[in-house]
Design a protein around this nucleic acid. Sequence first.
DNA 1: ATGGTAGGTGCCCTA
Length: 257
Amino acid sequence: MFTLAAWNINSIRTRLPLLLSWLKERTPDIVLLQETKVIDDQFPSEEIENLGYNIAMYGQKSYNGVAILSKFPIEDVTQGIPGFEDDQARYLEAVIKGMRVASVYVPNGMAVGSDKYAYKLDFLKHLYLHTQTLLTYDEAFVMGGDFNIAPSDLDVYDPEEWHEKILCSTAEREAFRSLLYLGLTDALRALHPNEKELYTWWDYQRGSWQNNFGLRIDHFLLSPQAADLLKEVSVDKQMRDVEKASDHAPVLCKLEL
DNA sequence: ATGGTAGGTGCCCTA
């Protein structure tokens, strides 16, 4: 069994002790991180390498930043979505054990109709175009991370409150669905089709964790060749319950490799 | 209608 994880860690420097203990406990083979919030020179590589991981990173100052940790050699690293001019570090792709993996941090979008919302939709359009190209390779491909989209009302604790709000608007959901229509499988939903309260993010505000005010916005999307290998997928909710938790819980995805 | 919390930065921005 081969375990992948996707986790918006919300600052890898603040969360480093938690990350290290979690890596020791869960021993994932590959970890796709988002919101590392650190430039590459200041990435805490040594502590992570000491646990047997190789690292690919694409960071920037203060915001965003993505990384891939892997127990196996990392090849063919691509920073940014090919063909998309972007000054924000939100996409990192590599090949590990013959499987293509990507760590994705889709823009939040702030509010429907804002400039940031337009940027989010533009990012998603280019993610779509690039995914279309990748799928012509007919290989196992896994894209995981923080998509900042709750695909359906089942993924939202209070659909009425969130109706047409950011993370839930029709245009965002359509963009997400277009990715699936290309042939990708939403791993969590595929194995838990009707499960309620299957959330990955709880706001720091309003006691959202304590009240279970959650949304499912972190996803694993699998190419057909990867979906054929899918065995288990779960949300590591324990990590949202600890001291100094990220506002996102990791998603764990097990493949028969 | 507003504010609540968290992280990084530098006298606010992003989420």
